[in-house]
Computed example of a mutant assay.
Amino acid sequence: MTEPRKIKPWLKATLELGPLVLFFVVFMRMREQTVTIAGTEYSGFIFATLVFIPVLVASTLALWRLTGKLAPMQIATLVLVVVFGGLSVWLNDPKFFKMKPTIIYLIFAGLLGASLALRRNWLGLVMAEALPMSDAGWRILTGRMALLFLGLAVANEFVWRNMSETAWVNFKTFGLPLLMVGFFILNAKLFERHALPKDGE
């Protein structure tokens, strides 16, 4: 199997986070305005979505070209952004794009739950290179991540259905990534307790 090629961390971060940051900036500048394209008026949210889709496609393709590999979550995110973002633009209805995080989190929660039920270590296959752990550690982490994704799906549904578009964009841009980071920080003891010994230990 071909090893993924290494790229500079700042370039990787730019390609992964740049499209989301651009979406946030465009939305914040255009949220009180409408844009007319081919005789149809679009809200600032829809216009930001229209900008976000091709930029995400380009950055994901660039990441694949530079590294030779994409994570399953990156592929799933790209597909769902194109489908649901495209529906939001086509139908001029923002709810489809807002539902995208819910759907992707439910998909991953379902996959992780299935891996536990089938006694398969699918999460370890994806993350073992970066986070070598024992099988017991992976089982615990898989269960916790399945619950995390379920919680994030519920949280996304609550925010977009009950709060303003600005609140949802802030939640999507900053809240969801911070919750993910917080999850891994809270599980630091798990990683330490179930880490595989390094060579020579």
Rank of each mutant, 00 (worst) to 15 (best):
V154F: 08
K69A: 09
A195V: 12
T102H: 06
G86Y: 01
F184H: 13
V154Y: 00
L123R: 02
S134W: 15
S88M: 10
P19N: 11
L22H: 03
A188V: 13
G18N: 11
P9H: 12
P94M: 08
R161A: 04
V154Q: 06
F52A: 12
L148A: 06
I104L: 13
L196H: 10
F23S: 00
G137T: 02
S88Y: 12
W138F: 07
V82C: 11
K100W: 13
L125S: 12
R5V: 14
L56F: 07
L80S: 05
T166F: 07
A167G: 06
A38K: 10
L111F: 13
P101F: 01
P9F: 09
K12L: 13
A62T: 12
K12Y: 10
F191N: 03
K98L: 03
G137L: 00
Y105D: 10
F97N: 03
F183Y: 12
T60V: 14
F96S: 03
G18S: 09
P132C: 00
G124S: 09
L125R: 13
W10Y: 14
A71Y: 12
L91T: 04
R5D: 08
V154R: 06
E165L: 04
F27C: 03
N170T: 11
I107V: 15
Y105A: 04
I185V: 15
I7M: 06
M30F: 08
D93T: 07
R65Q: 13
F24E: 02
N162W: 09
L141Q: 03
A136P: 05
W138M: 11
T49V: 15
S59L: 02
G124T: 07
A128G: 07
L11R: 13
V21R: 01
F183M: 08
G175C: 06
P54W: 06
V126G: 04
F183S: 09
T166A: 08
K12A: 15
V35C: 05
R193F: 13
L116C: 07
M180R: 07
S43V: 03
L196T: 11
V82E: 00
L106S: 10
A109C: 11
E32C: 03
A109R: 10
P101L: 04
V82R: 07
V25W: 07
L70H: 01
F108E: 03
N170L: 10
Q33C: 04
L63W: 02
G137F: 03
M133K: 15
A195F: 05
T36C: 08
K98M: 06
L11T: 12
L78N: 04
L50V: 10
M73T: 11
A195P: 14
G143V: 09
L106G: 05
Q74L: 02
T49A: 08
